[in-house]
Design a protein around this nucleic acid. Structure first.
Lengths: 149, 149
DNA sequence: GCCGTGATTTGACCCATTCAAGAAAGCGGC
DNA sequence: GCCGCTTTCTTGAATGGGTCAAATCACGGC
């Protein structure tokens, strides 16, 4: 519990109720979008403003405690798994996301064939496909990703 | 020129002035965002509505004539290079984008180490870094990507 | 050349995210 | 334990990419 507190202090951020709640929410629910974070946090702290959540997410992202991912066509999502450069599988149908370790083990694709003079510091991989539930036929629930039109 | 016309007919889309203009704009300016497309198209056809551009881009994307890319934190961008699965280097500082062929030649990372039961049909790679101009010190112009706050 | 369907114009609207200003809470020092 | 400085949160409104809807227009088969 006080683990989060230590994390915050480590990056010299003040320890506040909303920040702890956001970290807890992200630990329990990886890959959620901002709106879901707000809902989750309010389960504990009913009175936090959406603005506070945006600020907290920004602060935590800048501090490197959470990572922000944004699959094309969807809203921003956050996760607490940082440090290792892992990637994501995204379901085209329902928007579900799962973690995937890098195919070759570590930074495999980091060397582009022709870097055009760019100094590359990170390679981000998104695998697009269909999740088991959607493959099975029955669309599980909301199709937030692309079908949102 | 009538090349575009053939492309449109091939996917049974009607050949219209705005569509030809969009295709021409994307051929001459790869990786531009929607707003730039609108500006470019209006150089030829001053009276096209932004709505028309959105519709055209959607139609062309659905038809597979153009590809839509969306680096995290930036607006949607489009390119006409489709069919080969190439990737992109994006400059964190100025948002510049360049094409990059897949490191291993073709679909190298397409096999995730653990696919979680997902049926993967595409791997999308974004290399993050700094472009030559920005590395040289002098920020060329606008920093649209992340620095936009 | 005429007509029907697909495209475009026009104008309003939605919603994620951001901006701004004042109130409140964290925390280091006394 | 209390004070004050600073950061963070609340409140309320604005921004802007993108979408929806209805009416008009034009491509292209006949």
């Amino acid at each position: 519990m006080t683990d989060f507190e230590a994390q915050l202090r480590a990056v010299s951020l003040r320890v506040t109720r909303p920040r702890l709640a956001v970290l807890a929410a992200l630990r329990d629910h990886p890959h959620v979008d901002t709106d879901t974070v707000i809902t989750l946090v309010r389960a504990d702290l009913p009175s936090v403003s959406h603005q506070a959540i945006y600020d907290v997410l920004r602060a935590l992202t800048d501090a490197g405690l959470v990572r922000r991912i944004r699959p094309a066509g969807a809203n921003a999502r956050y996760e607490t798994r940082v440090g290792d450069n892992h990637h994501h599988v995204v379901c085209r149908s329902c928007g579900a996301i799962a973690d995937v370790d890098c195919a070759a083990g570590h930074t495999p694709c980091l060397t582009a064939s022709d870097d055009h003079g760019f100094v590359i510091d990170e390679a981000e991989v998104v695998y697009w496909g269909t999740c088991p539930a959607c493959t099975a036929g029955h669309t599980p629930n909301d199709p937030p990703a692309e079908g949102k039109r």
